[in-house]
Design a protein around this nucleic acid. Structure first.
Length: 269
DNA sequence: ATGTGACCCTGGATGC
DNA sequence: TGCATCCAGGGTCACA
């Protein structure tokens, strides 16, 4: 579910917790992608939340000298609920801040919660990540360097977190449509002019999705429980057989490395 | 090293 | 109605 825009919208929605202290932790499921920390209350109990960061699709909650790393996997969401609200199925973790509870729900349990001590950037899950797409340092030149000699198609290459972080299956298709690039084109053959358009398209697409509150397909909601709105503005994702919003040609779907890719055969060359 | 498919897990949609 | 099959915002792992 959550790609960079959804994680970023979630991150912003948690800002009301800044400065508040953890009063309790409730773990209902011992294992997501990894086992949950065994003594989470001992590690974060009583500590104040001093920062909420994001690296790619990972959230980093600064608590005392460490960070609580949270990944939402395919179906996770984080909501702020009242302490009295009863948990539902798949509500695996509560981090309690007095009357407000940060509640993690994740039906498929592909998400992760880890306690990190020391510099998060050096953690194995984060150390090899590529550039942040919305940072100034993400340029056509840097993208060209990352894609050089790569023989795979541009679309799966864009979803490789070593190339750029945060671009998942929806926004890879959407960005390539916006840039007018055929998703099947070999990554290393995409021209410099196309890469310049692609970098702009990725930034524009992600920013627009963040403004719209993300894409809610099945499981994703914002921190206050609201649905995102960007799915209504998808140009190609999930629209196979429907007319391209730009030229009217029917949108096509194909499968690349096991994932559905949507594109307009006329607008994308 | 790079590329691809299996796999982790649950639930919804579809088809027989 | 019931059951089987396929598919889904991600990431890791084994193996070509």
């Amino acid at each position: 579910m959550p790609e960079l825009p959804e994680v970023e919208v979630t991150r912003r929605g948690l800002a009301v917790l800044l400065g508040r202290r953890v009063t309790d932790v409730v773990v209902r499921t011992g294992r997501l992608r990894y086992p949950l920390p065994g003594d989470l209350i001992g590690q974060i109990g009583g500590k104040a939340l001093t920062d909420i960061g994001r690296r790619g699709k990972y959230l980093l909650l600064a608590l005392g000298a460490g960070h609580l790393l949270i990944h939402l996997g395919m179906s996770g969401n984080l909501r702020l609920v009242a302490a009295a609200e009863a948990p539902a199925r798949h509500d695996h973790l509560d981090v309690v801040f007095g009357r407000t509870v940060l509640r993690l729900r994740d039906p498929r349990r592909f998400g992760a919660v880890l306690w990190l001590e020391g510099d998060p950037a050096t953690h194995p899950l984060l150390a090899r990540l590529g550039p942040e797409p919305l940072a100034r340092g993400f340029t056509a030149g840097r993208l060209a360097a990352a894609l050089a000699r790569r023989r795979t198609a541009i679309k799966p290459a864009l979803m490789d977190s070593r190339v750029v972080v945060g671009v998942g299956n929806i926004y890879a298709s959407e960005s390539l449509f916006r840039a007018g690039i055929d998703p099947r084109q070999p990554a290393a053959r995409v021209t410099a002019a196309q890469l310049a358009k692609l970098v702009s398209a990725i930034k524009d697409t992600l920013r627009a999705a963040i403004r719209a509150g993300g894409s809610s397909l099945r499981d994703y909601v914002q921190a206050e429980g609201d649905l995102g709105g960007f799915q209504r503005r998808h140009q190609v994702y999930g629209r196979a057989g429907e007319p391209c919003r730009r030229c009217g040609t029917l949108v096509r779907c194909l499968r690349q490395t096991g994932r559905a890719t949507y594109y307009c055969p006329r607008c994308q060359k």
